[in-house]
């Protein structure tokens, strides 16, 4: 067992990146429609896309439908996994996840409010609304869960589930009483949907992500020290209050943006960091970035399954993540109960 070195860090990240590229290629390949393009034709269509020229039917399926969808799945999965790993470090609890904490639910409700009241401003402003919802939800969860200055795991999880259910109900209420046609469907809000997005949406998502990702990467070592306890971290030189605040903001921002474009997709932030920890260890300087790459791969593949398994019909991607995530969560809960309570 050696310590984390630059070589080890970068080779693991490179490996995970290749895995992601492979997943994206797979998801271009498969789909309800048979697409067969020769390599030169593929290249021609790709350059046509870059120069905004019209594409052939096959080219359009590949580059206007499947590629943006795979990239979106990657961004959403990566963001949720990174946010999950950060919430876990912040709350010192491996069961934390944006969905389980109610952050996703809060984001969804405020995103839908934004969509109703700010229709003219387009997608770009929705994440800001969702961000407020995320912050509100997490404050609510922490206020409910805190008992005598501590955050017991059980009350935290219960508070998260309740807050999530509450906001989900509000979303459904709004969908039931309004008849605005441009709102995403109930399925989107309950189970996630990655379809029908264009490249400008992807660019907006990336831009919103950027500050959050940069901050979380910068805080990675502090997350390691926080695993020793907040006071120990402080005694090792961490500005603990600032670190906690920035982590809250960054992880909430990333969650909010992801929810704005994909609805509610659960368990990615729970499963992915845990798998990374099992394989590569818990060092956050690797975990935070590796979670993004592997979370991206994970959701690209889940989405591939979702749109091919009952082809030509599609499943919401959240169905796949929840089918995998539910049992995983229970397994994790049982594991953490075998250890002394934290």
């Amino acid at each position: 067992m050696t310590a984390l070195t630059r070589a080890k860090l970068f080779s693991i990240l490179a490996f995970l990146f290749l895995l992601l590229v492979f997943a994206i290629v797979l998801s271009l390949w498969f789909g309800p429609a048979e697409v067969s393009l020769s390599l030169p034709e593929l290249k021609r269509q790709f350059f046509a896309l870059l120069s905004s020229e019209p594409l052939s039917k096959n080219g359009a399926i590949l580059f206007r439908i499947r590629l943006p969808r795979a990239l979106l799945a990657g961004l959403v999965g990566g963001g949720l996994a990174m946010a999950g790993a950060s919430f876990q470090a912040l709350l010192r609890n491996p069961l934390a996840d944006p969905y389980i904490l109610g952050v996703s639910g809060g984001s969804a409700f405020f995103a839908i409010l934004g969509m109703i009241f700010l229709t003219s401003l387009g997608f770009a402003t929705i994440p800001i609304f969702a961000f407020f919802g995320a912050i509100l939800a997490i404050l609510l969860v922490l206020a409910v869960a805190r008992t005598r200055g501590r955050l017991p795991v059980i009350t935290l999880l219960l508070a998260g589930v309740v807050v999530n259910a509450f906001f989900s109900a509000l979303v459904m209420f709004i969908l039931s009483v309004t008849s605005i046609s441009h709102l995403p469907s109930a399925i989107f809000w309950m189970m996630g949907d990655l379809s029908a997005k264009n490249y400008s949406t992807l660019a907006a998502v990336s831009l919103y992500y950027l500050p959050g990702i940069a901050l979380l990467l910068g805080l990675s070592r502090d997350f390691n020290l926080m695993a020793l306890g907040e006071e120990s971290a402080e005694q090792l030189g961490v500005n603990i209050e600032r670190t906690k605040l920035l982590t809250f903001i960054s992880a909430s921002l990333i969650t909010a943006v992801a929810v704005s474009v994909s609805g509610l997709i659960g368990f990615v932030g729970l499963m992915v960091p845990h798998i990374i920890r099992l394989i590569f260890g818990p060092d956050h300087r690797l975990l935070i970035s590796a979670s993004f790459l592997f979370g991206a791969t994970f959701l690209v593949l889940c989405d591939l399954i979702a749109r091919t398994v009952i082809s030509p019909a599609e499943l919401p991607v959240g169905v796949i993540t929840a089918i995998l995530g539910g049992p995983f969560f229970i397994w994790l809960l049982r594991q953490s109960r075998e250890q002394p309570a934290g």
């Binding site: 010192r92 070592r221 020793l228 306890g229 920890r277």
Partner: peptide, 24 residues
Amino acid sequence: VVPQQTQITFSYTVLEIVLMGRAP
């Protein structure tokens, strides 16, 4: 500082824990 008890959240190795002392 060595506290009375340290609850460590994730399964770090002993070497990783000791290396955390180098953070300052």
